[in-house]
Design a protein around this nucleic acid. Structure first.
Ligand SMILES: [Zn+2]
Ligand SMILES: [Zn+2]
Ligand SMILES: [Zn+2]
Ligand SMILES: [Zn+2]
Ligand SMILES: [Zn+2]
Ligand SMILES: [Zn+2]
Length: 697
DNA sequence: GAGTTTGAAACT
DNA sequence: CAGTTTCAAACTC
């Protein structure tokens, strides 16, 4: 066990290092935990995710969020030292001052999580493909320590056996149990520990993974793989650069080569000296060499063309491309590769990578022969389609464009695909030649994961959809509201006191702007697709109601964690940064009375949340297995029908924990598991549904 | 898998 | 800077 923690500790340290190397802290950013990143660097994320996978598969919480503030569309990336922090950030993002506009959402994806969900968390951003619906507000998600679960009893756990399936647990005890935010209630006794014997020892560390000094665990063989597992997402094949030039993608990404097929590689720890030298040289040549090449676009989030299902592209290449023969519709073009439109920075010839380009559009539609590819496309399309709606307007700047000439190219699948790429290490190479006619025939590629090329893909990639998040959020909000309501009833009298305190608190950081919270409600209403009336109206209502409730609850504003501040500074550096800076981790300085309510809410929400996650885990598992078997089969049978990725697999899961006292039992969603009715809530139009079907969603 | 194409990076 | 070479990935067959 200690090993685990040591490992974790190292891992985290390494991650930090890596992150800071790759994304030097910019200007006002002071929190090392948070870095902004752009889409283009997603491969780095993949790497990280993978790292995580390999070592922490069982207890990693991967959360993503998309920031759509003044930074355009950057991805927030955070490494949290504790669940509390993680949660706190989430909470802060959604409650306080700038909840909405900038912080669009919170996606949660999680690969697998152990019962000790509280023990640690690493936040990772998802690609900005999605225009998260800003109304997806996670009411208040606070994690409570996983273990104890609700006040009632901790029955939930038992059922959740799946947790155990995490193999690693088998070997060692489960991760340290829940930690509790000092602030509230007593940490539940081990009782909740439930299954396995957790290591009691660790339980206390509140916010950080125990930094055990430990000895043995090796520095970090992070990507070590156990047989089938994927390795580093991308491996270079450099032969003449020693991986010390930007030619090398590893080097360019700021990562050490690992598992690469390079020759004479010096991009590794052994040659750190040389490497550093090279880094210096490179920086000398171009100070921004290791920075994201894709900047935020002037126009923020771009809409989605509802008609086509295309997703928006955002950002622009800082230097622009200089393509001459690819029409910027092949990955030779960096813009295209990054899935962004060419901008005025580009000096390309015969560019077809602009909004409105027929050729480009074709890429999105053509080739659907490949199942896998198609599924991914569909998934992505669905994603974007489902959410969108809000950020319309601004049409892209079509400055330069207008060139039409040769046309071209056969690059078909690319486009959306590109996005998919964000999720997979090696884009499956879909042969671009498929002609519309024989599409199906072509399934060539789709080598299922597992095949030599290591295609890495988050198992939940297709499972968790924005709708899911929405649903989840909704549910949580409801739960939260319920809890709050229930709880507050008894606490009313204390309100007064609270009032005063609140004042104080708010003055601390986010004071003012909170007032406009109310706007929230209407927004939500607006967002909900009208067509969903039928079965959902009830839910809708309640949701709204609750939402307002919860927002009220939140009004007081809660102190934010450093992480939160860091994240939020994106949108408003104003006072936040200045006022209490991010240094000391004033964990939870809640205020008593308020806290209690929060605590209650949190408990409920978290409980619910946890359940969802567990379901998710199961799904991931199922999928994983599927892939596995798929991989085998594929060998034999060629291609044809694709794996039904997450299809109908129903999570054999445990019953969703009933939200404690209340009667709300919105079956959670993750729509896959969701009752259609809920699902429809998020659907924007029929089209998406259709696609979803293909996905087996 | 070998061979070709491509455009960024490196170099002059 | 511009022009050329080098390079490794993208792409083709
Ligand atoms: Zn290399
Ligand atoms: Zn490498
Ligand atoms: Zn290398
Ligand atoms: Zn280009
Ligand atoms: Zn371009
Ligand atoms: Zn272009």
């Amino acid at each position: 066990m200690h090993d685990k923690w040591k490992e974790w500790h190292d891992f985290r340290a390494a991650l930090h290092h890596q992150v800071s190397t790759l994304f030097p802290i910019r200007g006002r950013r002071t929190d090392p935990n948070h870095q902004e990143i752009t889409k283009e660097y997603f491969h780095v994320f993949k790497l990280k995710i993978e790292l995580i996978h390999n070592n922490w598969k069982s207890f990693l919480l991967v959360a993503g969020c998309l920031l759509a503030g003044k930074f355009g569309n950057s991805i927030g990336f955070s490494v949290f030292s504790s669940v509390e922090e993680f949660v706190s950030v989430f909470h802060g993002l959604n409650s306080g001052a700038r909840k909405t506009p900038n912080f669009a959402l919170i996606g949660l994806v999680l690969e697998e999580i152990s019962p000790g969900i509280d023990s640690l968390a690493v936040g990772i951003a998802l690609p900005p493909l999605i225009h998260w619906d800003r109304d997806l507000v996670l009411g208040t998600v606070l994690m409570e320590s996983g273990g104890q679960s609700n006040g009632e009893e901790a029955p939930e756990f038992p059922p959740k056996k799946l947790v155990r399936q995490l193999d690693f647990t088998a070997n060692l005890g489960t991760p340290p149990p829940p930690i509790q935010s000092q602030t509230h209630e007593k940490p539940l006794p081990q009782a909740t520990a439930t299954q396995s014997q957790l290591a009691p020892g660790l339980r206390t560390s509140i916010s950080m993974p125990p930094k055990i000094d430990s000895l043995r665990s090796r520095p970090l063989p992070i990507y070590e793989v156990k047989d089938g597992t994927p390795k580093k997402p991308k491996q270079c094949n450099c032969k003449h650069s020693r991986c010390l030039k930007l030619y090398c993608e590893c080097f360019a990404s700021g990562v050490h080569c690992d598992g690469c097929n390079c020759v004479n590689c010096c991009n590794n720890v052994e040659n750190e000296a040389v490497r550093q030298e090279a880094v210096g040289l490179t920086l000398e040549r171009n100070p921004n060499a290791f920075r994201p090449k894709i900047g935020n676009s002037p126009h923020s989030i771009r809409d989605i063309r509802e008609d086509t299902g295309e997703f928006a592209l955002v950002g622009k290449h800082n230097k622009g491309c200089h393509c001459k023969k690819s029409n910027c519709l092949k990955k030779y073009c960096e813009c295209f590769q990054a899935n962004i439109l060419c901008s005025e920075n580009c000096k390309c010839i015969d560019c077809k990578n602009f909004d409105g380009s027929e050729e480009r559009r074709a890429l999105f539609h053509g080739d659907q022969g490949n199942n896998l590819t198609y599924m991914q496309q569909a998934a992505n399309a669905a994603l974007s389609g489902a959410i969108g709606s809000s950020g319309y307007g601004s049409s892209p700047s079509l400055k330069k464009k207008l060139r039409g000439l040769s046309f071209g190219t056969s690059a078909k699948d690319q486009a959306i695909h590109r996005i998919a790429q964000l999720n997979q290490a090696n884009p499956l190479k879909t042969s671009g030649t498929a002609s519309p006619g024989n599409t199906a025939a072509r399934a060539v590629n789709s080598a299922p994961p597992g095949s030599s090329k290591l295609v890495y893909r988050p198992l939940l990639a297709d499972i968790v959809q924005p709708e899911d998040v929405k649903e989840l959020c909704k549910l949580l909000v409801v739960v939260s509201g319920e809890a709050a309501k229930t709880f507050s009833d008894q606490k009313i009298h204390e309100e007064k006191n609270k009032e005063t305190v609140d004042q104080t608190e708010s003055s601390l950081a986010l004071s003012n702007q909170e007032r406009n919270q109310n706007k929230k409600v209407p927004d939500i209403r607006k967002t909900l697709p009208d067509d969903c009336t039928s079965g959902t109206s009830a839910d809708k209502m309640s949701t709204e109601e609750i939402v307002s409730d919860s927002t009220d609850m939140l009004k007081g504003g809660r102190p934010m964690s450093p992480g939160t501040l860091a994240l939020m500074c994106d949108e408003q550096d104003t006072m936040l940064m200045t006022s209490q800076n991010t240094s000391a981790p004033p964990r939870f300085l809640y205020n008593q009375s308020v806290n209690e309510v929060y605590a209650e809410q949190e408990r409920c929400v978290l409980t619910e949340f946890r359940d969802c996650l567990q379901k998710l885990i199961t799904r991931g598992k199922v999928k994983e297995e599927k892939y596995a078997s798929m991989a085998m089969k594929s060998e034999a049978s060629g291609s044809q029908q694709g794996p039904v990725i997450n299809g109908t697999v129903r999570a054999p899961m445990s019953s969703p924990a009933e939200v404690s006292h209340t009667s709300i039992t919105l079956p959670i969603s993750f729509h896959n598991f969701l009752p259609p009715k809920l699902g429809c809530l998020t659907t924007e139009n029929g089209k998406r549904d259709a696609k979803a079907e293909h996905l087996g969603l």
